[in-house]
Design a protein around this nucleic acid. Sequence first.
DNA 1: CAGTGGTCTAGACCACCAT
DNA 2: TGGTGGTCTAGACCACTGC
Lengths: 229, 229
Amino acid sequence: MTATYREIKADLLGQISGGRWPPGSLLPNENDLAQSYGCARATVNRAMRELAEEGIVERKRKAGTRVRMSPLREARFEIPLVRAEIEGRGAAYRYALVRRSQMSAPPWLRARLDLPPEAPVLHLECVHFCDDLPYQLEDRWINLTALPQAAKQCFDIQGPNEWLVQTVPYSDAQISFAAVGADPDVALQLGCAAGDALFQTERSTWWQGRAITFVRLLFQPGYRMSARY
Amino acid sequence: MTATYREIKADLLGQISGGRWPPGSLLPNENDLAQSYGCARATVNRAMRELAEEGIVERKRKAGTRVRMSPLREARFEIPLVRAEIEGRGAAYRYALVRRSQMSAPPWLRARLDLPPEAPVLHLECVHFCDDLPYQLEDRWINLTALPQAAKQCFDIQGPNEWLVQTVPYSDAQISFAAVGADPDVALQLGCAAGDALFQTERSTWWQGRAITFVRLLFQPGYRMSARY
DNA sequence: CAGTGGTCTAGACCACCAT
DNA sequence: TGGTGGTCTAGACCACTGC
């Protein structure tokens, strides 16, 4: 007869999706639910807190717990390392550095990363191969003021992505996805036709309030990113 | 000196990103941490559980809590209703139904949704406008065996998305993003050039183990989807 | 087997905020 | 201002799993 928080959560979710509490309606309070499930209030609290984190219900002190009107649901995507993504499929991974240069940050990058004028940055262009076919282009910019060690790194063998992960393990990031047409230079490097639709992700990374790096990734035509939610 | 779980979580995260516990290393166990923070074990447990949910650490019974080697991090994207997305920007939203037909599910759809042969489906093609410019094309397929009510719905005024949200509020879904080139028909409807790179999302939705609907959304050129993580 | 995290309890105090 | 959720406690038992 002991109800676990998982059981309570599943039961509540079943009753919500079954229509017992329609969107916008009020659920009983924690004390009443605890009594009817025959458990402690903390157990009900955990079940309802998780439903709230998942966007199913909305909780307010004094106002109680309501089923959300518009299902503000979110999808979660894993952001894998390219190497892991490719090797995880049983394919061979290869990495190549195409160009490397050090310069002052161009204006568009200064705006993105909130850098001062003349900020020194390292620019890297890399290709990641899957079974010897170009899979992903990496256009990487590293803020040398925040990460001066990067200037000494050669990046011939290890890609900047993996190096950064080791060096600055846990940081904040902003990411965006878009579709772009392949320009002739990109098409040549990816082995596709100019104008092909490519999946692009851009990511800015910050650590302790300072911009670390910006990267633009272009995937081979046909790439998909998927998730359950 | 009462430490809250938020403070403990922030402190642990700070020490991890500061390098005190490098990737792969073992954190103290819950009892020791509780003692050093001067709080109950449940408080430490919640802090570390949330760090685990966020992909920062990895926990195993008996083995303890370790900082993750590869930062298996995930991005969260909100999946808004088109109407909310457009009106949220202060633009005018308009919806139009372009085509509506009832038929047996074509083979590719049967495969996607695991439908039996001859399964009746409703096919809807819609356009969502933002300030009278085409913003999103919706190519919607509804399984009439699971949702016979849909056959009686006219969908002239209310789009299928909003109707479905009201009718089947909480369901499982699989979603994927890709970049595709606009074919001539799509280009005409979106008011762009044929071949333009378009952001596409596809979603299959299930409820209680049965396929409900499949939808393919095409966005106007230049659309971006973004998130923090 | 023994150590670790996973969960539950019964009670308490508090912050918030709709009425 | 009273009802609601948010959090913490001290203790307990259990499940898993590396040794």
